[in-house]
Structure formats: structure tokens, C-alpha cells
Nucleic acid binder design. Structure first.
Lengths: 231, 231
DNA sequence: TGACTATGACTGACCAGTCAGTCATCATCT
DNA sequence: AGATGATGACTGACTGGTCAGTCATAGTCA
């Protein structure tokens, strides 16, 4: 009963309007090859899906909403993705791969280990904590158990690499005498734990008690490296 | 069309069987008053719901499954809870309240601050990390943004109290000279971060790389209090 | 024009929530 | 004590609505 039969007569105008507004998002891009257009649409779908999945979680997200937000018809989604599930999986891959690429392009180890770690933390603060990317991390924590393939991918590409990198950094710090606690190299998790907590805190409790993540990370690094002497 | 008319004749035996098996779970408890029975059923529903929500998340959980697991008809659930949503909210309250009660029954501050914190960590390790309770924490992180009331409740009852308690402990440690880092009292999050990470790690990555949470917490405490001298 | 792409109405499965009916338990009367 | 009626806990088939996925049709580009 909710479904209106929708006379064929009203159909055509509707379609035209819908299309016009959909196009509005790309806008003024006449020199697009078919392939380029397709890629743009795919990107729009990925963005929209990310937004919706973060806001509602996998199960509660409607493909109709993703389509509307992307300015695309529902059927179009199925030209790019097999089904909802594999869309979610590919989405995570698509968003995470560039981050991993960035991490691999590590700045060459110059200066003290503390400076390195601090640069890292600064980056994380700017690029992850309190951003869409941070929400994605929370989403992975949320959906991980129901998407082993996503959890596996995330572990393989991000967690294990990140841990290895941090461990190397810690070992360097120990060798140079900047870090006292020898066993820390066994648990790089301790180094990154406050950063992860900050990510989660921002999306759950920022409303109740805003957290100065930057200052917290500073204190944490003081704890590990010893208090900073000058400024 | 899918629904079979189900002859009335087959109905009666079915009912009897269903009831028998349902009763089987309580079993050999003839001395139950109406009220007692009702409480037991409610508890069974809460347990079953917890299990299902943890395994599938809120949106993907079917009330039919909860009912089946609890050995109860679907309608019975609605005698105890208004709807799915408020069932979830009450579930979280029901499970968390006893934990809070336990925390309020703090052991009197005897011995060093490190011993106190260590006892605390030991408890957390045993009672939360790698248990259903730990999974519940992950569930709250997962569903929090879609259930502000749950996030609020959790913040009010657990997080803010926990933070206050930890802060007091840290200040005591600083006053007694056990803790160097003065600013730590501003961020009790740093103290508990590795414990939270352990909870999340266990439910996401234990399969790939099991984590010795106990040892990790030991290292973390060494970091804060300085290396243990004896033993 | 012909191949390819996009559309959105439609279908079928699925599921939260309802409610008419059943029956164990309890209260009251004889 | 035993019989009779009242109560409300419990049941599960059913309803109304939702939504993933399909496909006939329409549009677009080379």
C-alpha cells in the first residue's frame, strides 16, 4: 500500500529531474571519457557508503540511502559492486590502501627517536583522530567480528606493519639510550594505545568530556622518553 | 504464501513439545513462585540477548533467535521489554550495574599505590579481558554512536567514575613519590589505555597474534612506576 | 546505429511487533 | 480436602512494512 503505482506519465519528468540534480555534483565536467566518468561515480559511491556505514553501521545502512547520497540510482551501485557485503569490504580496502602507502613512504630517520615518534603522533593527530579516518577505525572495531576478511585485511596491512615499525623505532630508542624500559619493544601496543583511545574517545565521549589528544600524547611520550628538558 | 496453514490437529502436540524443551533449561525447579519464574525468564532472555547482540550487533540480531536461545516464545520478550531498542538499553544497564557496584566496594587503600593498581589490573584481566564482559565493552564502542543513551549511561556510570578513581590513585602515587610524571593525573586514560587495547585486541586479533595481556600490563606499570626492584 | 551505461519500479524474503487463544497457578467456596 | 472459577503468563501464527537485489526500459556516447 505504501508503494504508489506511479503513473507512467509522471515517470519521465521525474527521471530527468533526478538526473539533473545528480549531475550537479560533478558539474561542469564535459571533457570526461566514459572511463573517467565511471571512476568518478565509483568514488562518489565509496564516499557516500563510507559516510552511511560510519553513521549507521553495516546492517542498518540502506543501499537506497547510499545511492541517494551519491547522486546515483540504486542499480548503478550493482555495476560497481557485487553486493552490499563485498561493497563494504572493498570500501575498507579502498580507503586504507592510500594510508598504508603513505606509511611506507617513511621519512628517513633523522634526528632523535623522540622527534620521529613525535612527528608520527602529530601526523596521526591531524590525519586520523577526530576525522572520518578515525571513525573508520571505530567502524572496523565494530564490524570486525562479523567481517573476518575485513579484520584480517586490517591486521595484515595496518596493524602488523604498524607494530613492526613501532617496534623498530622503540629498539632504536633503547639502543640510543632514549628509552629506559627495555621490555617496551615487546609491546608496541603500549606506545600506540593512548592514540587509539583518543580515536575512540572522540567518537563516543567528546560530547561529555572533550579530550585534548595532543596534550595527552605529549604526556605519554614524556612518560616513555622522560620529561623534555628544554621547551 | 510461504506460510503453511498448519492444521489445527498438529498444533497441540507441537505446543506440548515446545513447552517441555523450554522448561528443560530451568529443570527440576518445582518450588518456583510465579514471580521467581518470571525473574528467571527475564534473566534467560537477557543472557540470550547478550550472546546474540555480541555475536551479530544490534541491527543484525533477530528477536526470533533470542527467543529460541532463551527457550521462550517471541511474545514473551514483549512482556519484559517494550521493544528491541529498549531491550538493548536495559540489557547494558543490567549487565553493567553489578560491575559498578563491585567497583564501589573498593578495597581499603593498603600498601603501595603500585600494589593497588596491580591488584586492579589483575582483577580487570580476570574479569574483563577475553570474557563476555570484554565483548560487551566492544559492543558499546560499536553501537555507542547509534545509542546515545547507552553511551551516556556508560560514560556516567563507568567511564567518569573510573577516571576519577584512577586520577585519585595517580595523585596518591605522585604524592608518595611512586610516580614521577606529574601530568599523568590529568590523563588517567593513559593508565588504562593498554587495558582497553587488550580488550579490543582479544576480540579482533587474538586469532592472528595472541597477546599476553598480563605481561603487557606489567611492562606498562613498570613504565609508570619504574622497574620493580625485587623478584 | 549499435554497444554500453544508467535508471528506478518491482519482487520476494525477511523480521519487528501484535493479539487471540491456551493453560498452569492461585483464590475462594463448599 | 476437593471443586470451581478467575487470573495473567505464555504462546506462535500472522500482519504490515522494509530493503537487498533484479531487470525491462531509457539514455548516451563513439
Amino acid at each position: 500500500m505504501t508503494r504508489k503505482p506511479t503513473k507512467a506519465a509522471t515517470l519521465s519528468p521525474d527521471r530527468t529531474n533526478a538526473k539533473a540534480s545528480a549531475r550537479a555534483s560533478n558539474d561542469a565536467a564535459p571533457a570526461s571519457s566514459r572511463a573517467t566518468r565511471a571512476a568518478e561515480r565509483r568514488a562518489a559511491i565509496v564516499d557516500a557508503a563510507m559516510e552511511e556505514f560510519i553513521a549507521r553501521g553495516f546492517a542498518a545502512t540502506r543501499l537506497d540511502d547510499i545511492a541517494k547520497r551519491a547522486g546515483v540510482a540504486k542499480g548503478t551501485i550493482y555495476l560497481h559492486f557485487k553486493d552490499k557485503e563485498s561493497m563494504f569490504e572493498e570500501l575498507v580496502r579502498t580507503v586504507i590502501v592510500p594510508v598504508v602507502a603513505k606509511l611506507n613512504a617513511l621519512p628517513p630517520p633523522t634526528g632523535s627517536v623522540r622527534d620521529l615518534v613525535e612527528a608520527f603522533a602529530g601526523n596521526f593527530l591531524k590525519e586520523v583522530i577526530g576525522t572520518r579516518r578515525g571513525d573508520l577505525v571505530r567502524l572496523i572495531v565494530a564490524e570486525g567480528p562479523r567481517f573476518p576478511s575485513v579484520a584480517d585485511f586490517y591486521y595484515r596491512e595496518v596493524v602488523s606493519r604498524g607494530m613492526a615499525g613501532m617496534r623498530a623505532l622503540i629498539e632504536l630508542g633503547i639502543a640510543r639510550g632514549e628509552i629506559r624500559e627495555k621490555d617496551l619493544a615487546q609491546y608496541p601496543q603500549i606506545l600506540v594505545a593512548p592514540a587509539m583511545i583518543a580515536v575512540i574517545w572522540q567518537s563516543l565521549f567528546a560530547r561529555h568530556a572533550p579530550l585534548d589528544a595532543q596534550d595527552m600524547l605529549r604526556v605519554h611520550l614524556d612518560l616513555i622518553f622522560g620529561e623534555r628538558r628544554t621547551t
